[in-house]
């Protein structure tokens, strides 16, 4: 019997090595796998490369992981947002490396990694500082920038519902990077608000089929009241 549901956070986070590239879902706090990020902090893994849309806010979660000095580099689109104090302190002190990527290029690099596409040409960022030093090509009269796939060692995602096969559904704008990142890592760990029996998720509405998912942890956001 396939059963990807794990009973605790330690089991969910087992086997994450120092130096790993960690894909973290979410856009702002929505769809961000907060419990798994806490588990990453507790796991003790360091020298990490984190791929995430944002660079954390406040002093908890991703911000705390960075403050503990466990993140060598962050690859993101928008590290500066209200309350991103830890990132800004570390960046100003030269204690964290930053790779800034346009949001659609980040999404497509992740998609490509999951889809077996090593690189692609995109019009985004052509003629800007973010394309400096990159290979370009003119195709049918338009200029494009070569971008490479961005695979992860581990993806941490948040689902709305999950079953024991690892099938996932998403809720509203909590979908964001989660289904894309779930395809792009060697090990995909999902936290979910609800566990459903196998067969109870409508097949037409499953956002991530279980073949992409290795572990599922039940971690409801009770405080959110939804």
């Amino acid at each position: 019997m396939i059963d990807k549901i794990v009973t605790d956070l330690t089991e969910a986070m087992a086997g994450i090595s120092d130096g790993a590239t960690i894909l973290i879902g979410g856009f702002g706090s929505v769809g961000q796998p907060d419990t798994l990020i806490e588990g990453l902090i507790e796991s003790g893994a360091g020298d990490l490369v984190v791929v995430s849309n944002n660079a954390g806010t406040g002093r908890a979660g991703l911000a705390r992981l960075m403050e503990l000095g466990r993140v060598r580099k962050i690859i993101c689109t928008y590290p500066r947002s209200a309350g991103s104090v830890v990132f800004e302190e570390l960046y100003a002190a030269g204690k964290i490396a930053l790779e800034i990527v346009p949001q659609g290029t980040l999404a497509e690099r992740l998609r490509a990694a999951g889809a077996g596409i090593p690189a692609f040409f995109t019009p985004t960022a052509y003629g800007t500082k973010l394309a400096e030093g990159k290979e370009t090509r003119r195709i049918d009269g338009r200029d494009y920038v070569l971008e490479y796939a961005l695979p992860g060692d581990v993806a941490l995602v948040e689902a709305w519902e999950a079953d024991r096969w690892g099938n996932l559904t998403y809720r509203a704008s909590g979908r964001n990077f989660n289904p894309v990142m779930a395809t792009a890592a060697k090990l995909t760990i999902a936290q979910t608000n609800h566990i459903r029996d196998l067969g109870d998720l409508a097949p037409d509405l499953i956002g991530t089929p279980g073949l992409y998912v290795d572990r599922v942890l039940h971690a409801p956001r009770e405080a959110e009241g939804v």
């Binding site: 689109t77 590290p79 990132f87 960046y91 800034i100 346009p102 949001q103 290029t105 985004t124 973010l130």
Partner: peptide, 9 residues
């Protein structure tokens, strides 16, 4: 720190 979001796309 630079921040670009979706502006270039």
């Amino acid at each position: 720190a630079p921040a670009v979001g979706g502006a270039m796309d």
